[in-house]
Design a binder for these strands. Structure first.
Lengths: 257, 257
DNA sequence: GCTCCGAATGTGGTCAGACCACTTAGACAA
DNA sequence: TTGTCTAAGTGGTCTGACCACATTCGGAGC
């Protein structure tokens, strides 16, 4: 018979580390926000080199499961679930994602999220939404703050939907869109209309009207898209060659030096 | 004034590598399937240590953008776009995803994908779908093969939708579900009904009837889910305590030693 | 006593060079 | 021709040192 190789060190150490940490998370030993032991100690513990441990941690960090802070430590991620933000950017570069596709995807995700939120939302969500609607109206003249509460509003809707997977997908898309929106929202003129739409969405959710919630969310996103489209087209007058394909890179990308 | 630190090496080398490779992909220098230079050479080129280069490559590999083959080389990923398969598993462990949420998400994604495919599908897609429907019918008595063509069918629908982002999300979910389905499909009895549903979906798409396509897809997935639910419940009679929460780990997880 | 600065400490980030493990291809022998 | 073996190429791991960042804490100066 062919030799069975080594009986132990067949798979990569990297995955060993990943699986080890996952098991710690699964059995509750590690909670979101928790700190894992220092790399040197962890390496000693798993009987492998620090380099291998770092590979495993890097893998988890790349997927957003872990958060590494230089000089402080490595922690289990505790924010809202989402796929690594850079992920969409990289994949966009690789598969040629275009901005209209991002909007379309967002439209589908958010409209369903809104409908589900209307069906399943609890009192606490209604309260939180009301809070954010108020904030949104309060900042109709401060685009930057407006956008922040806009994002929070949508995040709460996602939470209220009761489906964290769907919420994570939405979070992934909107995160990729955020930088882009932050630029265009600055020159927006009619934030009041957008605020009003948020209010209507909230009312539909509170009234437990899935159909209305979906409809309002769709309308809201369509308005937002066309508004941003206008802003964008203003900036690219001369060079119409770089179309959406270029625009998407502007929206994603970044994070360079 | 405070000293400005070093003027260059402020950010991490890892991201430097990632950005470098991304730029190579964006400007077309690197195409899917292409091989990048050996780590040692790449390190010399970027004037940094091999360890740092490996960190960057590991990052990209973790997100599925690059594919590393021991003893061969590192390549740009060329399969269908999707977020790292392990990603959902890890996030599931971290945020407590449950199986019904995966089905619900899949239902939403696929029904919209089907509707879009009906609107935008081209002749080539129709032909490919017809091909797969035939294959599916041919393998109603061979669950393993049936499932393979089932997956391909849905993948083509996703392609036909013209929205690769939505397709990538779908691919992520179904990949996570695959191992799970592979087990349950073995004892399935009425694959014929499932095959028939695929045919109807195909016909609706070919007829460019978005409403019908969406409806058929929804029905198909609902049937599939309940069928799998039956299979599953048979296996867990005694221990009803571990519910969905446990089942999802069975569906994802894996890949251990 | 209080404040502020700076050294000490802990932790992740990088480097260097060596060696191991896997794949492939080419040389050589049967 | 065929099969085997060796060598080269490439990723995987190890070691141990040092760098960079963040926090803590003690002492100098007020």
């Amino acid at each position: 018979m062919p030799r069975k190789k080594n009986n132990l060190p067949d798979t990569q150490r990297t995955m060993h580390v990943v699986n080890h940490i996952r098991s710690l998370i699964e059995d509750g030993t590690l909670q979101p926000g928790d700190k894992i032991p220092p790399e040197r100690e962890f390496a000693r513990l798993l009987k492998m080199s620090r380099a291998s441990v770092r590979a495993g941690i890097g893998y988890l960090a790349a997927m957003g499961v872990m958060k590494v802070r230089h000089g402080v430590g490595t922690f289990v991620s505790d924010g809202p679930a989402e796929f690594s933000n850079a992920s969409l950017g990289l994949m966009g570069a690789l598969h040629g994602f275009q901005s209209w596709q991002m909007f379309e995807t967002r439209l589908i995700l958010e409209s369903n999220l809104a409908a589900l939120a209307a069906e399943r939302g609890k009192e606490e969500h209604h309260a939180a939404l009301a809070e954010e609607v108020a904030e949104i109206f309060a900042f109709v003249d401060s685009p930057a703050d407006f956008l922040i509460h806009d994002v929070i509003f949508h995040r709460i809707v996602a939470q209220a939907s009761g489906n964290p997977i769907l919420a994570a997908l939405m979070e992934t898309i909107t995160t990729a869109l955020y930088e882009f929106r932050r630029k265009t929202v600055e020159h927006s003129i009619d934030l009041r209309e957008s605020a009003e739409m948020h209010r209507r969405i909230y009312r539909a959710i509170r009234a437990r009207d899935p159909v209305e919630a979906r409809k309002m969310m769709e309308e809201h996103l369509r308005l937002a898209q066309t508004a941003q489209g206008k802003e964008r087209s203003r900036a690219r007058k001369s060079s119409k060659a770089l179309l959406n394909h270029k625009t998407i890179q502007e929206a994603l990308g970044s994070s360079a030096s």
